[in-house]
């Protein structure tokens, strides 16, 4: 059986909220290392890869590998019943029809129990190669969100160019052009505000802003976001979570003009 207890329901609520507009039905693959999810959006342009390591739960028990086929809209309805600070426990049998969710508020002695019906999902699984990216940029997640939202007001696409001097986001639209350049900076007192650029070669790629703005719904999960780019390969947008868990998004680049 599976039994996984999260100190705060907030984590799962935020993860599901960040991905539910991108993917609808997906398997939560549970094994002894944790709970993983991989799913592509319908247009096969974006991919979500989530890993909640066993260490993120306390306790965590998973006797046998189990795929929990979940409709995220339905899961959202159930998670709405959990307060952010509630203790959340996920439970399932070895061949489950339902996922049992328990929310506990220790202050008020309230215990809520929900069973979510599961579905059989025949999911395509993609092998993501280990990639040495040409550019790795770490920046505040709210900054990245602001840039994407601002540029989407002008255009559907953004060009991302990285050099040792900085990272430039630029777009061209009907009403005009826009560009935001971030230079590397280190703030000793507020490391969350740092912009760090590791570069082995300059990169220039174009992406759909609609997807990037969608990824930025995860900004509440981490104060920083990591962008990994190489020419002609998908962008990796990573939000690191506590206990080496993560929420990653991959986005195929646009090609040609």
């Amino acid at each position: 059986m599976l039994e996984a207890r999260l100190e705060q329901a907030d984590l799962l609520k935020k993860v599901v909220d960040a991905i539910k507009d991108l993917v609808q039905d997906c398997n939560f693959d549970c094994n002894d290392s944790g709970v993983a999810l991989q799913a592509m959006d319908n247009s096969h342009v974006a991919l979500v890869s989530m890993m909640l390591k066993a260490e993120s739960f306390s306790p965590y028990r998973c006797d046998r590998n189990v795929a929990l086929g979940v409709n995220l809209t339905s899961l959202t309805k159930v998670l709405r019943a959990a307060q952010n600070e509630d203790i959340l426990t996920l439970k399932a049998e070895d061949a489950p029809d339902v996922l049992n969710l328990v929310f506990e508020n220790t202050d008020s002695d309230r215990l809520s129990e929900y069973d979510l019906k599961l579905m059989d999902i025949d999911q395509e699984h993609l092998g993501i190669p280990d990639t040495e990216y040409a550019a790795t940029i770490s920046l505040p997640s709210v900054e990245f969100r602001r840039i994407c939202v601002d540029l989407m007001a002008l255009s559907e696409s953004v060009s991302i160019e990285t050099s040792k001097d900085g990272i430039k986001f630029s777009c061209a639209g009907d009403i005009g052009n826009g560009a935001v350049t971030l230079r590397p900076n280190t703030n000793v007192e507020k490391p969350d505000q740092n912009v760090e650029i590791e570069l082995t070669e300059p990169v220039a790629l174009t992406f759909s802003l609609k997807y990037l703005v969608n990824f930025c719904k995860a900004a509440g999960l981490s104060k920083t976001v990591k962008l990994c780019l190489s020419n002609e390969v998908p962008l990796l947008v990573e939000y690191a979570l506590a206990g080496s868990s993560y929420l990653r998004f991959y986005l195929a680049p646009k090609i040609g003009d």
Binding site: M40, G127, E156, S157, A252, P253
Partner: peptide, 14 residues
């Protein structure tokens, strides 16, 4: 407008 690539061109089904 640039064309949009497909992720399955980069990642192989397993």
């Amino acid at each position: 407008t640039p064309l949009q690539n497909d992720l399955s061109e980069f990642f192989v089904m397993v």
